Amino acid sequence: MQVIVDLAKCQDHGQCAIAAPVVFQMEEGRLVFDGNPDASQRVEVEEAADVCPVQAILIED
């Protein structure tokens, strides 16, 4: 699984970090993320993509 975040679109709301804190974190007000998380994180990453207010998260297999 590959996680892609359109950082030009991302507005750092942090909803993804709440939904999937192992994959997404807010550091100094900016999003950082693991682009190749373990497959065991899929449900959380899908939830993070769903709750993103600007739909900036894409998941590829």
Results as ranks from 00 to 15, higher is better:
residue 56 A to W: 00
residue 28 E to G: 10
residue 51 V to S: 01
residue 45 V to E: 08
residue 51 V to C: 03
residue 24 F to S: 08
residue 57 I to D: 00
residue 15 Q to M: 12
residue 52 C to Y: 07
residue 60 E to C: 06
residue 60 E to T: 14
residue 1 M to Q: 04
residue 8 A to Y: 03
residue 52 C to W: 08
residue 32 V to A: 11
residue 28 E to A: 12
residue 14 G to T: 01
residue 39 A to E: 14
residue 29 G to Q: 06
residue 2 Q to W: 08
residue 44 E to N: 15
residue 47 E to M: 13
residue 11 Q to A: 01
residue 54 V to L: 13
residue 52 C to V: 07
residue 5 V to P: 09
residue 45 V to C: 09
residue 59 I to G: 12
residue 54 V to E: 13
residue 20 A to N: 08
residue 61 D to N: 12
residue 20 A to L: 04
residue 55 Q to K: 13
residue 29 G to A: 07
residue 51 V to D: 01
residue 21 P to I: 05
residue 38 D to C: 10
residue 15 Q to S: 08
residue 47 E to H: 12
residue 32 V to F: 10
residue 2 Q to Y: 11
residue 44 E to H: 15
residue 29 G to L: 09
residue 57 I to M: 04
residue 12 D to I: 03
residue 30 R to P: 00
residue 22 V to E: 13
residue 3 V to N: 06
residue 26 M to R: 04
residue 19 A to T: 07
residue 34 D to Y: 01
residue 5 V to K: 12
residue 54 V to K: 13
residue 2 Q to T: 15
residue 23 V to S: 03
residue 2 Q to R: 15
residue 35 G to L: 01
residue 17 A to M: 02
residue 50 D to R: 14
residue 4 I to Q: 15
residue 9 K to A: 09
residue 24 F to V: 11
residue 29 G to D: 05
residue 14 G to F: 01
residue 14 G to S: 04
residue 11 Q to I: 07
residue 4 I to M: 13
residue 57 I to K: 02
residue 58 L to F: 04
residue 33 F to A: 02
residue 23 V to L: 03
residue 39 A to T: 03
residue 35 G to E: 13
residue 26 M to W: 01
residue 30 R to M: 08
residue 16 C to H: 04
residue 1 M to V: 06
residue 41 Q to P: 05
residue 56 A to L: 03
residue 40 S to E: 12
residue 58 L to W: 01
residue 45 V to Y: 10
residue 61 D to E: 15
residue 32 V to D: 11
residue 9 K to R: 15
residue 18 I to W: 12
residue 49 A to G: 14
residue 26 M to T: 04
residue 33 F to N: 06
residue 26 M to E: 04
residue 37 P to Q: 03
residue 30 R to E: 12
residue 5 V to W: 09
residue 6 D to W: 13
residue 40 S to A: 14
residue 42 R to I: 10
residue 61 D to L: 08
residue 29 G to P: 02
residue 17 A to D: 00
residue 27 E to C: 09
residue 35 G to Y: 05
residue 10 C to G: 10
residue 29 G to E: 06
residue 58 L to D: 12
residue 12 D to F: 15
residue 28 E to K: 09
residue 1 M to E: 04
residue 32 V to Y: 10
residue 45 V to H: 09
residue 28 E to Q: 12
residue 56 A to H: 02
residue 34 D to L: 04
residue 60 E to Q: 14
residue 26 M to D: 03
residue 44 E to C: 11
residue 24 F to L: 10
residue 35 G to P: 06
residue 1 M to Y: 02
residue 57 I to A: 02
residue 44 E to I: 00
residue 29 G to T: 02
residue 56 A to M: 05
residue 31 L to N: 09
residue 1 M to W: 02
residue 38 D to R: 08
residue 50 D to A: 14
residue 52 C to N: 07
residue 10 C to V: 05
residue 27 E to P: 05
residue 57 I to G: 01
residue 18 I to F: 13
